[in-house]
Simulated assay, not measured.
Amino acid sequence: MGDRTADVLDATLRCLLRYGARRTTMDDIASETGVSRSAVYQYVRNKDDAVRRLAEGLHVTAMTAAREAAAEPIPVADKVFGIASAKVQLAAGPFAESPHAAELIDEQARLCGDICRGFTDDLHGLLTGVLDEAGLDRPADTARIVLATTIGLLSAGRTDLLRTATDALLDGFGTTVKTLEGEQQ
């Protein structure tokens, strides 16, 4: 992605956070970018394309963080927290202040819901792998519960409880999990 495409997507983000997807226009994006409307079309096909590309980029960045957490030689509880935190990070920063953020990060969103669902599915797979490697019984179910809890905390505005929640969930399954080095946690 060229620098100008990044500028257009950054401008799209600012417009979306300000106006929402329905009210944002290509003229808004062009004005925010500082170029003509026809120039914006050199980088994106239309507003929907800009929104989807923006959402994809945000989710790729979050998934990269989740994969990095999963690959660290740290206790499983820390890995699970790190993976769940990737979902939370999508809602942080400028998104926390905008009523329109859900249009980019909500699985029910018209334009980007499929991207968000794919991201959650990928997180589920990553969590399942980490939990399976740790020897946890029913890792796929545990991963679903971790994600449901994370989503619930996001909805309630209580992401400050994520660490406590992930630790409690793992403790509640009554299974001792191991780090990659085989140490007991």
Rank of each mutant, 00 (worst) to 15 (best):
D78Q: 14
A143C: 07
R4C: 07
L154G: 13
D132F: 05
A30S: 08
D137V: 10
D114K: 13
R67C: 10
R45L: 05
T33Y: 03
A6C: 01
G118Q: 05
L161Q: 13
L123K: 09
T24R: 08
D28Q: 09
T12E: 02
L147Y: 03
S31F: 11
D28S: 07
A77F: 11
E133S: 15
A168P: 09
M1K: 01
S155C: 13
V130I: 01
A77M: 03
S38D: 12
D28N: 06
M1H: 11
D78C: 04
G172D: 01
V8S: 01
A96Y: 07
V8G: 00
D3K: 10
A84P: 03
S85P: 00
R45F: 03
R45H: 09
A168G: 15
T149D: 01
L16A: 10
H124K: 04
A101R: 04
S155W: 03
S31K: 13
A143V: 14
Q108S: 13
L13E: 15
D122Y: 02
A11N: 06
V146T: 13
I29Y: 11
Q42E: 02
D7Q: 14
D48G: 15
K47S: 10
I105F: 11
M1F: 11
P139F: 09
E133W: 08
A11E: 07
R14A: 11
V8A: 01
A168S: 14
E97T: 06
T159D: 04
L154Q: 12
D10R: 15
T12N: 02
T128V: 04
L154T: 11
R45G: 05
D106C: 09
T61P: 04
E103R: 00
T120N: 11
A39D: 04
P94V: 12
Y19R: 14
T5S: 07
R117P: 06
L58H: 01
A11M: 09
D121S: 13
R14M: 06
L154F: 05
D27S: 08
V146R: 01
E32F: 05
A134I: 01
T24S: 10
D160Q: 11
A165C: 02
V76C: 10
A101H: 07
R138K: 15
V44A: 07
L154S: 12
A11P: 04
I145W: 09
E103Q: 14
H100L: 03
V80T: 08
A102N: 09
C112Q: 06
P75Y: 14
V51F: 01
D48V: 14
D167G: 12
L9M: 09
L13H: 07
Y41L: 10
